[in-house]
Every structure is written in C-alpha cells, then in structure tokens.
C-alpha cells in the first residue's frame, strides 16, 4: 500500500483544491483529511453522512472546592499558569496532572477531554476519513494519527492500494503526524516570498523524517521571478518540481460550487493537475 500526503507549509496555496482533483483522478483509493483543525476537503467531496465517532484525548484538572484547603500549592507549582485563585483555566491547562499528584487535600481530579470527532464518510469518489478537533483542544497529532490509522484499516479491508491525504498547514505536531511514514509528500507552494519561505521549512521537515518530496508551484504565473527562485532553490536541494500550475479563477469557482475543478472545468489548471497526478503515480510505482 502507498500513502501520499499533500502539504504546503503555508495555507491558502490551493492544496485542498488539488487534493480534490486527485480524488476525482485516482481510481481506487481512500481519502484522508489530516487537517483536523480546519477540515475543508469534505466541502469539495460532498459526502453523505456516514459514521461518527468520539475522540477522547488528554485531560483537564478540576478542583473540588469543598475539599480544597486553599493551601495554594497547585497554583504555585503549575508551570502553565493555568490555576488562578483556585480555579483552573481549561484553555491553559496542559493536562499534566502535576497539581492532582501534589494536592495534599486530594481535591484535584483529572477529567478526560472530548477532544473531537472523527468520521468515515462515503463520497462518489470513494471513502473519506476526516475529523473535527474540538475548539481550543490540543492538536497533538493524535487525532491525525487516528484518521490515518482508520484509513489504512479501510484500505486493507477492501484491498485498496492507495491513500491520499490532505495535510495540515505549518510544520508542528499535526504535520509531523501526517507525514511520518508516508511514501511521498507533494508540497504545494505559490510564488510569493512567504510561500517560498514556508516551503523551505516544510522541505526541512520532510528531510528530517526522510520522506521523499515533490514540489508543485501553484499559480506560478503570478510572479515569474519568484517562481524562478523556487525552481533554483529546489534544484539546489535536489527536489524535483513536478508541476507548475497557472493561475485559473475556475479553481475558486469550482470550490464555490462544491465541485472538484476536474468536473467544473477540465481545461486550464485541471489539465496541469492531471499531468501532475500521472507523475505522482509514476513516482509511487517506482
């Protein structure tokens, strides 16, 4: 089984639209949305309501006012500044349990967090596994690991050989969780200074976790000079540029209509995405 993850470092480079197009192009696959913090892929793939599961992870301290003797030890020891006037601020509590372990009155208990939900949905392009992290919850990468694991299970059970995953932005926990152990990372960037800067950092992460990377420059024609810089940088790093996709307003229009760009307008950017997909298939096969 092969697993490809699409990352971008910076948000808004058109990553999800490209993944949506892949969903249309790939024949047999399981789709995963690893952006559990702002999952958007389902808006393009328009799934029917499927299975929904709770995701419990992490803990928060709760002080029992009736038992507390106001000794102040918990407040003094908490390193996350989460206890003020003997009240725990849920948003700051790291769930370390230090306070509960030291409280002389045993007034502190740790309660489990309902950290989010994950879903298995049917779409006309195949199965989509996605999730919704609860508000202000820690995106530790555990929910990402969970959706990937579920996708793998489904693929194994139904003899599917490919998993396509839409990765989260950034370079921290959730990205590491979506990237580690995959066969290929497609890095979607755009020719802006920030796009380039973030690409360099995400290439660093791929290297750190020894995942081979391919780059795609989306909207390459909005700044030719920057496109050339990105090309030179990638050449230096020994990373291939698999595609340069021109700016095409149909990509956004397709999204507004809740369709993949392949269906909405198969000319323009869509043709480039199709070629890109063939290159990826080649890579994964080799």
């Amino acid at each position: 089984m092969k697993e490809i993850v699409v990352l971008s470092g910076k948000g808004g480079t058109g990553k999800t639209s490209i993944v949506g197009a892949f969903a249309y192009l790939a024949k047999s696959k399981v789709m995963v949305d690893c952006d559990v913090d702002a999952a958007d892929l389902y808006l393009l793939l328009q799934p029917e309501h499927g299975e929904e599961h709770e995701f419990w992870s992490g803990q928060t301290a709760v002080i029992d006012g009736a038992k507390c003797t106001h000794c102040g030890l918990c407040e003094q020891l908490c390193r996350f500044d989460a206890i003020h006037d003997l009240v725990v601020d849920d948003a700051s509590c790291e769930g370390c349990g230090f306070c509960a372990n030291v409280c002389p009155a045993e007034a502190i208990t740790m309660k489990e967090n309902l950290a989010g939900h994950w879903f298995i949905s049917k779409t006309k392009y195949g199965t989509l596994v996605h999730a919704r992290l609860g508000i202000a919850q820690e995106n530790s990468g555990k929910l990402v690991a969970m959706v990937r694991q579920q996708a793998k299970k489904i693929a194994e059970e139904s003899g599917i050989e490919l998993i396509i995953s839409d990765g989260p932005p950034g370079i921290g926990c959730p990205v590491i969780s979506s990237l580690s152990g995959t066969d290929l990372a497609l890095l979607v960037t755009e020719p802006t200074l920030s796009g380039q800067h973030d690409l360099e950092r995400v290439i660093g992460v791929c290297r750190h976790f020894t995942v081979p990377a391919l780059v795609c420059i989306n909207k390459f024609d909005i700044n030719d000079a920057n496109t050339r810089k990105i090309e030179a940088y990638c050449r230096n790093q020994g990373i291939d540029i698999a595609s340069k996709i021109p700016y095409d307003s149909k990509v956004t229009e397709a999204m507004i209509h809740g369709k993949t760009v392949m269906e909405y307008n198969p000319n323009g950017a869509a043709q480039h995405i199709e070629k890109l997909w063939n290159i990826i298939i080649d890579r994964l096969g080799g």
């Binding site: 913090d37 948003a91 950034g170």
Partner: peptide
C-alpha cells in the same frame, strides 16, 4: 496568530 482553532491559536489570542 497561527491558522486554525486549536491550542496554538488559543495560546496566541488569549
């Protein structure tokens, strides 16, 4: 602030 709604965002906007 960083994008999203999880703890890094909360930490930033708090």
């Amino acid at each position: 602030a960083p994008p999203g709604t999880s703890c890094p965002v909360v930490e930033s906007v708090k």
